[in-house]
Amino acid sequence: MAPLRALADLDDEERAAAESLLFRLADDEFVIAERYTEWQVVAPTLESDLALSNIAQDELGHARVWFDALGELGYSERDLVWERDPGAFRHSTLVELPFAEGDWADPILRGYLYDVAEDLRLDAVAGSDVRELVDPVEKIRSEEEYHLEHAQNWLERLCDDDAGRERVQSAADRLVPHALTLWVPGPAASAIDSSGLRGESLDATRRQWLDTVASFLESLGLTVPLDPGDDPTESLPDSVGSDGNHTDHWPRLHDELTETYRELGRSDVRRLRGEGT
């Protein structure tokens, strides 16, 4: 295998492509973690509460990995999180939507749709030739295995009777179109592929994702509101997120998560001891 290149060694065009890829990876992780934490203290049992909180922490850790890579390209944490315009976030609408209130099927199914996608995304960046993309994959994946197992085990149990299955089905009808936004190509898509930043195209990854998700959900007696042959663009929601057009829920969430920073009149962030090691 050819030796890996460093992000800092990319030329301007490749660099722009890498930024665009990293923003999507980081923002999806960051925002889904933020949403997950809303279940703290209100999940169905203490155990499920702790499990989801831990998953949220993992996803924040993964966001940190990709934000750090953007740091290599000159961004500060302040630019990336605390003072970034909400319209400059590139996450999908799947991760920003509020949860259907009191519906445990929502975070579980959403987690499943997201975790399968994350797994495939990791495969794709592991096939790149850039060190900052390849190196973190193994560590992230070891945590992702738990997330997938957690989501699948819960889904199997939620679909164990008619009432539960109906809840999961309605979450699927609502969320699958939003999950498709994870695969909407941005303006840098072809530059990302031609710069060797991922080993698999977005389109191929989406097809794999749909195959995996559909066969698992169908095995639980659910129907996926989309066939593999369908044109995915026809099923997309009005806003796709990754182009900067978000649902109205996003500015509210962004406002909430930056509230303390603004209230305390901060202009910079200090790293905690041991962070980034």
């Binding site: 155990e47 499920s48 085990n153």
Partner: peptide, 16 residues
């Protein structure tokens, strides 16, 4: 840990 079955119990025990 509280869990409905063995598989979920191992999942929760791992975290806790």
């Amino acid at each position: 840990v509280h869990a409905p079955d063995r598989e979920m119990a191992t999942l929760f025990a791992q975290i806790q």
